[in-house]
Nucleic acid binder design. Structure first.
Lengths: 190, 190
DNA sequence: GGTCTATGAATGAAAG
DNA sequence: CTTTCATTCATAGACC
């Protein structure tokens, strides 16, 4: 049951869910075919529903991806009908990793105002992955985790750890700020 | 912990997960902050990871839905490609047209339909007050001060905190830029 | 229909 | 983590 979980090659591992055998032995909350052992713990139905939920979202995402691609393709001038999975995968993920990461050399040490380096712009695929990770509730990653994420993103285009760090910092700060502003706005209106 | 589950109007209902209190009383599998009671049952980490995974899928689905809608709308009449489409496509990793934005687009309008999200235009009275505040040497206001200013300006017309924040940011940057240009011009001539 | 300019907004990076 | 800076994108309005 635990193999359908990581549809998207997650950064962190998902511990395997308990097997049916384990559940049978130790029980959920007794609403299933198995005996009650730990009342108050997650029930069998809940666990099963979670699995379904994930499967459903996964399926939805997949379908929407196909649909989106199809609509997009047909909206182009000389559109081609057929769209292979490989092509879709290509459009979503693998873009040619281009040139150098181009992290602006720290400017502080320079006496005058030297020209700053060009700033990093996440590729579409990189942004998608970052958003996904953020949606997951992940905070600013540090240490090995950040390195791991950077490595993964590097397969999708130029990037370095500082970029990843900054992105999460900014994302978090701006999400929070937006929240506070909304609260203030609510006070104003109501 | 149990409220974040059904972010996207799920296909089927999810029974509430056990509350933290329940978990505390009856325990998961001991990898969390709570005592082990039912070894073999789902662990705290597993539960949490499931929630995160669902959140991520949910986010992806949401973005893809927006994209689909945008593409559809813009396939009508002679609509020009909007920044919104590019931004969303960008965020979920679908490569938008041949145009390479090279810069992630902002999203003015959050919703798909309804009045197109128009950008704020300060009323004459608001602008006067803003200029007045800026003339006192005030920098970009934050926190309570920004809320206070926003409240005051709100009496003169529609405005929100982000508008105030942006106005000061832009005002400062462009004032500074103008100064530098004047100096440069002076150096050239003199 | 154009393009030009002023300006609101977004965001990576850096400073505090 | 919070605040600020620098740069860029995108749009409204003026004018042609």
């Amino acid at each position: 049951m635990s193999e359908g979980l990581c549809a998207n090659d997650p950064i962190f591992d998902v511990p395997p869910l308990p097997t049916d055998e384990q559940v049978k032995r130790f029980g959920m909350d007794g609403d299933g075919p198995y005996p009650t052992i730990a009342p108050g713990a997650m029930t069998w139905t809940q666990l099963d529903t979670l699995r379904h939920q994930i499967a459903a979202f996964s399926h939805l995402c997949e379908q929407r991806a196909l649909l989106t691609q199809q609509i997009y393709e047909e909206s182009k001038p000389g559109h081609q009908r057929s769209q292979t999975l490989a092509a879709i995968a290509n459009s979503i993920g693998v873009s040619a990793a281009g040139s150098q990461p181009s992290y602006p050399g720290p400017v502080y040490s320079k006496g005058g105002d030297g020209p700053r380096g060009a700033r990093w712009t996440p590729s579409a695929a990189q942004l998608a992955r970052l958003e996904e990770l953020f949606a997951t509730g992940m905070g600013t990653p540090n240490g090995d985790l950040r390195t791991k994420i950077t490595d993964e993103l590097a397969k999708l285009g130029p990037v370095n750890e500082a970029n990843v760090y900054n992105w999460f910092q900014n994302k978090k700060a701006r999400t929070k700020k937006k929240l506070l502003e909304e609260q203030a706005a609510k006070n104003r209106s109501g």
